[in-house]
């Protein structure tokens, strides 16, 4: 499963990136998919174990968390 983690600010995106990288989580910053938000910013894309990495970014408020199985986007968390 692929996940897109959307935050409110680029500051929080970079904060989450720093936290995840600090734990060697395999992730990437990508432009926010247009169908998920009209924001012109970036979000975090990661594969695999979402629950395992969530504790690393606990303190950072997420706008939206979206799963993608190759066919369908599903909002599974966030505000």
């Amino acid at each position: 499963m692929t996940y897109f983690l959307l935050f409110f600010t680029i500051h929080d995106v970079l904060r989450a990136e720093k936290a995840l990288k600090g734990h060697h989580v395999d992730m990437e910053l990508v432009p926010v998919p247009r169908n998920l938000s009209s924001d012109c910013g970036m979000c975090i894309k990661l594969r695999g174990d979402l629950d395992g990495v969530k504790p690393y970014i606990n303190g950072i408020e997420m706008d939206k968390c979206v799963s993608y199985d190759g066919k369908e986007y599903r909002t599974i968390g966030g505000r």
Partner: peptide, 11 residues
């Protein structure tokens, strides 16, 4: 701000 661009209100 580059964020919440769909909205005309200040974040």
């Amino acid at each position: 701000t580059g964020s919440r661009s769909e909205s005309i209100e200040q974040p």
